[in-house]
């Protein structure tokens, strides 16, 4: 068990691909703690292991060893899942990716609605809530639009709405602003912070965008699979103290 206000905790996560001469250590002893309502940046050059860490925490790509706790529950013990990962992902984790990764044959609202329906929400209720979420993210008037008819920023907002659909305790975002211009990128990052604060979710954002670092409560860096906290930017604890 972990502290009750901890959304995500990883302990000594390792990921090794291949074996023998072809062995590649993608992540070594990665430790991170993210509290509810906290937004954390994960920086690092390409190939440093950021996405490996994120997919491990997202229960998509299991670690070789180490432990992952989400909302105080041990969900991965090494490569062994301790929960039904697909069901757990559906209920507790929201994902936002570099590309919006929306389902192209659905409208903006349906993309949000499907996440709710998969989690057992009735169709009518899901539709209402999806529309409400889109409105709260400023794209309510685009609900009936096909994904391809939306701008990059609008698509990313829809993806965020989908990530929030089931009130997840964890939101994982992998370079969500990479395809956006700087102004939109800033807006999206601020949106993540608002979401973290309002929904009390723990948010991890993998980013290269140095201009948005002031949004984050804490910054971690990865290099050659090793993770360390960047102390030059201090986490904002005001939210928890208030």
């Amino acid at each position: 068990m972990t502290e009750p206000n901890i959304a995500i905790e990883t302990r000594n996560l390792n990921k090794i691909y291949g074996s023998g001469n072809t062995e590649v250590v993608a992540m070594r002893d990665a430790n991170m703690i993210v509290h509810h309502g906290e937004i954390v940046a994960l920086l690092g050059p390409s190939g440093s292991g950021k996405s490996t860490f994120l997919t491990a925490v997202g229960l998509i790509n299991p670690p070789t060893s180490g432990e992952i706790f989400i909302g105080g529950t041990l969900v991965m013990n090494g490569p062994k899942p301790m929960v039904n990962v697909r069901s757990f992902r559906r209920q507790h984790i929201g994902y936002v990716f570099q590309k919006s990764n929306l389902i192209p044959f659905l409208t903006a609202r349906e993309n949000v609605q499907i996440a709710m329906e998969l989690n057992g929400t009735g169709s009518r209720e899901a539709k209402k809530r999806a529309q409400h979420l889109l409105e709260s993210l400023g794209v309510g008037d685009r609900g009936d639009y096909r994904v391809i008819m939306l701008s990059g920023g609008q698509q990313q907002r829809v993806a965020i709405a989908r990530a929030l659909a089931n009130h997840p305790s964890v939101i994982l975002a992998d370079e969500p602003t990479a395809a956006l211009d700087s102004q939109l990128g800033k807006q999206v990052m601020e949106l993540f912070r608002t979401v973290a604060r309002e929904y009390g979710a723990g948010v991890i954002v993998v980013t290269h965008d140095q201009r948005t670092l002031d949004v984050f409560d804490m910054i971690y860096e990865m290099e050659d699979g090793a993770m360390h906290q960047n102390k030059t930017v201090h986490p904002t604890k005001a939210y928890f103290n208030s």
């Binding site: 998509i60 697909r86 069901s87 757990f88 992902r89 559906r90 209920q91 994902y95 990764n101 929306l102 389902i103 192209p104 044959f105 499907i114 996440a115 998969l118 989690n119 989908r162």
Partner: peptide, 18 residues
């Protein structure tokens, strides 16, 4: 054609039966 959408559905937790 929709293999990516199927992967995405799995990612957001859609059960196999869906």
């Amino acid at each position: 054609d929709k293999i990516r959408s199927i992967a995405l559905l799995k990612l957001i937790g859609a059960p196999n039966r869906v």
